[in-house]
Every structure is written in C-alpha cells, then in structure tokens.
C-alpha cells in the first residue's frame, strides 16, 4: 500500500514559532487515520501544512508521492488532495449544487453518487448553503471535497458544533467513502472513541509532540493514555 500523504520531520507554526515539532506521519490509500489530541496540540496546523497553505518551518510533506509547494496551495487540490477545514469554508451565498459543481473534476464521482452518500442533501440542492443546518453543512463540505475524486482526504474537526448523534451517523459514511473510492483519509476529531471506531490507525499529539501512535484497537485499549491527554493527569 503506497502512502498518499507522508510527512517527514514536519515542523510548522505561525510567525516563525513552531506549534508542531518534527512530525512523521503517513496515510495509505483506502486507509482511515485519526489524528487526535487536545486543543492546541497542533492538529489543524498539521493539516494546513500538508495542504500547503501554511509553509512548513522544517521537514518535508509529500502528497501522492510528490513534494508539496507552499507557494501554490491550489495545485495540491488539483493533484488530488481534498481538505475539509475546521470552518468548512463553504460558499454560503452559493447553492448546494453550485458548491458541489465547483468541487467537481473529471474522474470524480457523479452528482448522483454523491447524493447517495448524503441523502439528506438531495432535496436541498437548490438551497443556498448558508441556510443549511450544521449537520447538512458538514455533509456538503464532505460532498464538495469528494466531488473532485481525491486520492487523499483530510477532515478537520468534523464534529465541531454538531450533536453527537449526527457525528455518529457521518463517521461511518467516511469509512464507506474510504473503502469505495479508495481514498486515504486523515481525520482530526475530538470525539476520540467515535473516531477510533472507524479508523485503522491513529496518532496522538500533545503540545505539538507525537505522544502515541498505533492501530485503532491499540489506542482504544489505552484509554488511560487518551484521557490523560485530554483531561490532564489528575483526571483518571
């Protein structure tokens, strides 16, 4: 299995100071990988650096075997890297259909196929996306990212502002997409157990350092470790 995303010794941050230190990470095709850790751990920074939106301070990022250029982040997207950012970056003034159209590229799934993954969107295609509910907006962001037929998909805090029940419904769709479209998925998520439930592997960051990595099962087992990361040592 070849890696669709690979970082080697990646350090990144803002204004010259690193938030993320020397991260080695890999996502294979068709694999779902969780990137976990408390706020401020550097998860979002990692995704931005992989996208090329944030120039790395050190280290290397490869997407689909080619090095990422931070000066032209849009080239990455054309090459087959989709990124659903934390704020979803939807175009609120455009309709659902227009949002998806903008994501479409030749070789990507058809509109109907996308609607099949997210049936809730199907009867809102002509609505402006700003009027959708939070869960629908997240579905649209996912559908739009998938529309280009990406080989690698990064999803940042999919559950932000969503009720757990919606998250529980959406995550299996992500799993299905990874399998059916052979996409490598890198998932940043705060609902740790939900995320690991659909992941193959996971990485845990704390304050920019990698503190654990392993298969989802291994990480599920070490619940202590995770809770330590989130609630502090005193917690458990």
């Amino acid at each position: 299995m070849s890696a669709v995303i690979r970082t080697t010794g990646l350090s990144a941050g803002y204004g010259g100071s690193a938030v993320l230190h020397k991260l080695d990470l890999e996502v294979g095709a068709g694999e779902v990988v969780s990137l976990l850790g408390p706020n401020g751990a550097g998860k979002t920074t990692t995704l931005l650096a992989i996208s090329g939106i944030l120039p790395p301070l050190a280290g290397k990022v490869e997407v689909l075997g080619e090095p990422v250029s931070a000066s032209e982040p849009h080239v990455n997207a054309r090459r087959g890297l989709a990124h659903v950012p934390e704020d979803r970056a939807l175009f609120f003034s455009l309709t659902v259909r227009e949002n998806i159209r903008l994501g479409q590229r030749s070789g990507g799934p058809s509109f109907e196929q996308l609607m099949e993954y997210f049936p809730a969107l199907a009867n809102r295609v002509s609505q402006r996306s700003g009027l959708l509910s939070g869960g629908e907006q997240q579905m649209l962001a996912l559908a739009r990212a998938l529309a280009g037929g990406p080989r690698a998909l990064m999803i940042d805090e999919m559950s932000l502002g969503l009720a757990p029940v919606i998250v529980e419904n959406l995550l299996p769709v992500v799993r299905r997409i990874a399998r059916e479209q052979a996409v490598g998925v890198l998932l940043v998520e705060q609902h740790v157990h939900l995320a690991l439930g659909i992941s193959d592997r996971g990485y845990v960051l704390r304050q920019g350092e990698l503190i654990a990595e392993g298969t989802a099962a291994e990480l599920q087992e070490s619940r202590q470790l995770l809770e330590a990361g989130y609630l502090g040592e005193l917690a458990v």
């Binding site: 939106i53 849009h74 950012p85 175009f91 003034s93 455009l94 280009g148």
Partner: peptide, 14 residues
C-alpha cells in the same frame, strides 16, 4: 463569486 466570499475554500478546491 466563491473566491470573493471565501478565498480559502476556493484555493482548497484547486
């Protein structure tokens, strides 16, 4: 129109 509203979104779509 999309880029005017959200440049990041447009860049991420290529």
């Amino acid at each position: 129109r999309a880029a005017a509203e959200n440049e990041k979104g447009a860049v991420l779509l290529g």
